[in-house]
Design a protein around this nucleic acid. Sequence first.
DNA 1: CTAGAAGTTGGAGCGCGCTCCAACGCAAGC
DNA 2: GCTTGCGTTGGAGCGCGCTCCAACTTCTAG
Lengths: 136, 136
Amino acid sequence: MTMTSPAAPALDEDETLPIAEVARCTGLSADTLRYYEKAGLIDSVRRTAGGVRRYAAVDMDWLAFLLRLRDTGMSIANMQRFAGLRREGDASVAERLALLREHRDGVDRRIRSLRENNRALDTKIAHYEELLEGER
Amino acid sequence: MTMTSPAAPALDEDETLPIAEVARCTGLSADTLRYYEKAGLIDSVRRTAGGVRRYAAVDMDWLAFLLRLRDTGMSIANMQRFAGLRREGDASVAERLALLREHRDGVDRRIRSLRENNRALDTKIAHYEELLEGER
DNA sequence: CTAGAAGTTGGAGCGCGCTCCAACGCAAGC
DNA sequence: GCTTGCGTTGGAGCGCGCTCCAACTTCTAG
């Protein structure tokens, strides 16, 4: 799930979006957005006087980053660790960097493994193709 | 989870393995092996007179293939579809081929998406590195 | 001012892929 | 033959990542 440019309106400084709009342009459901917030993955979201969420540009950026982590297979538990470090401010930069590197390396390994397995599937597919050829 | 050569003894024709051995060399648990069988993913497994499973070379091959499907993210439901077609014999070859191609293409898309996201993570990592540089 | 749409909360429920358990049966070594 | 441990079954339970719900409040267009 990418954040496609036309779907994400590129908010001007201090323009804000209601949850339905954020849902639409992130591909997450409103429920999931609330769930992420409750889980501590997001915590900066401002509210109206009545308690209604209004997402700012900074929230959208953080969300886009979270989505990258999620889409590369990071668990919510690890995203919580990362979000927690972020809350601690600059002191945690080294630790965040380490976490991120480790994650990226894991993704690289995963990509290599997928490519290897997919090559094997290609071979299997070729076998099936031959089988069909011979039968005609 | 790959089937590493030294772990998988390369069974002679009609030598068989007990479930614990199969578990060890596939990386699956015995519970999972039984679960897969109950789910109809595996159905050729012979038994002793007493009802104890003995896995033959052909079962190991099929398991290795299932593991490839699983490790490339195929759901159990889809593996069931595939296993069902296989049971139907040669008539289903075309359909199996189609299923496999579709799966492989999906994996390719997933790989591309992972690579794209990982490049973005690299950028983020570079930012963090600069941040740490500047601070020293 | 009002109707109706959109948002809020806490908590229950769900689908997936296992994982664990109890109670029992079989098998291999002494 | 007996013990010890491996294997069997059916079914319950679990962790994850949402998803849905009821009951209620807020926001917005007319």
